[in-house]
Design a protein around this nucleic acid. Sequence first.
RNA 1: GUCCUCAUAGCUCAAGCGGAUAGAGCAGGGCUCUCCUAAAGCUCAGAUGGUGGUUCGACUCCACCUGGGGACACCA
Length: 569
Amino acid sequence: MATPREILAHRLKLTLEKTFPDLMPEVVPATDPRFGDYQTNVAMVLGKKNRVAPRDLARQIVRELDVDDISEPPEVEGAGFINFRLTNGFLARGVAVLFGDERLGVGVAEHPGRIIIDFSSPNVAKPMHVGHIRSTILGECLARVARFLGHEVITDNHVGDWGTQFGKVIYGWKHFLDKAALEKNAIAELVRLYRTVNALEETDEAVRRAAREELVKLQRGDVENMEIWRRAVELSWREFQRLYELLGIRFDERLGESFYNDALGGLCDRLAAEGVAEMSEGALCIFFRDDPVLSDKPMIIRKSDGGFLYATTDLATVEYRVRRWNPSAIWYVVGSPQTLHFQQLSAAVRRMGVTAKLQHIAFGSILGEDRKIMRTRTGETVGLAELLEEAVERARTIVTEKRPDLNPPESEEIARIVGLGAVKYAELSQHRMTDYVFSWSKMLSFQGNTAPYLQNAYVRIRSIFRKLDGIFVAPETLTLEAAEERVLAAKLLQFGEIVPLVLEDFRPNLLANYLYDLAIIFHAFYEACPVLKAEGAERRDSRLVLCDVTGRVLGTGLGLLGIKSPERM
RNA sequence: GUCCUCAUAGCUCAAGCGGAUAGAGCAGGGCUCUCCUAAAGCUCAGAUGGUGGUUCGACUCCACCUGGGGACACCA
């Protein structure tokens, strides 16, 4: 089903086609209810180009425009806006269509692609902390939205399971391992080993040499070291997996950095042979001389000591993905500090002949109290596990207080849904580029523009249907008498407009904003319009349809954000 | 030094290719549960860092300035 916006834009195009064949008329939701439901500024755009008074042009367009079936007579206002107010009949039919539409008015992408989404990517032997939350939650959300819109999505967790830190970890493992601690909390023990060795290296040159030696042995495939490495990876993964399960995230692939190890040497040789890469100051580099931004920023792919880098692995990863999946796009959900790296990666890959579009979906940083990026090194970061536990704990307190009647398993389930939802929503409801100072009260707020607010609207709806006696038959046409009903209906018809918008600039917050608006409108409807106690069966059933569609839009929308909706709370 | 990014109410955030009177939440005051879940609703107050420019029209685009965060050859 076409959205009101699409229908209006199409009608405008038909009207203007003869005179302005290339014009794509823009229709947007009205900025204020006084101006109706939708507005267009085509008359102003055309008026400027053609030196005609916009209001005159607008009046002429309105005369020729045929929208009687969906809109009240359009009005020309202000500097030349054309305002549309959808008819009640159109709204009523529209909601009736949504009622019978599983997709709730959301179309599928015109050109579905195959998209690889690379996100989360924690480092082995380090705990996930709040810094990982954005990539993880954003990536999951984008994957859900892309799938919903008909794209084929492959999610890949490119875990940092190979690197220089393993020299220290292995040395520590051989000398200071506390097996009981490892059983209890593997990552904490691995971190302790790493830190212990790191500290020793500061003062003891022998330790430093020994740790480096362990790394070299690992890289050569030494059996004992490989086994320690393998265990460290698996133990870390087990802990990550626990958090992913809690968050409801599953990856299609988990091809870590180590997976590409064997390909790095060959790749470098090939790039050198093809002339893509060249030697400079002993290192193998790719230069981008014709690119004004990157001309003085070479990408080093092999160090002068022969070692490979992060960039090398990323190139090998692209090559592998292209060969195996031939994707139309690869999305990297990685923080904005890596913008330059991804510019280089895109440029390098283009030169290698890759046509898939590499898209860096950057996001702002989470800052500490000192307004500096939270880093594991500088100490006091908040662990992701700790954050999620605290969220559930706070939700648990509220649930047990508000709903002492629920049995423990159920209130525990609700606490999880509400607590985790609050954390996810706190991330997704703001613009992804916004830097913010981490704050418990912000992440764990349960009031106002938060997931629990949306969940509460959903719960109110579910409650109505639980109390409904018998079945109800959706009426052929809805009765939209109250202003609140009309506003709600119009908002519901916008769901199909908003979901595709999320992928246009990778902004789940547009969906979050929409759902919040919808919940506000629903609450107003709920206060003003009794449903089960409505006067007359027809009015009741009409309102039940509104409730049903609202509930499904909220549930689906929250689902796209990766947030669950509880039956009660 | 060069480049990227951000700056909106006391605080934390919005604003769908430039649109009409810039929206919320928190914090504070005052109301609303014999009524489908009050994690709610209603109500009072407050803001686009600075200077110019483009435009019928600018939070949005351009230039410069100030201030945060970040990146910039052998870390990931």
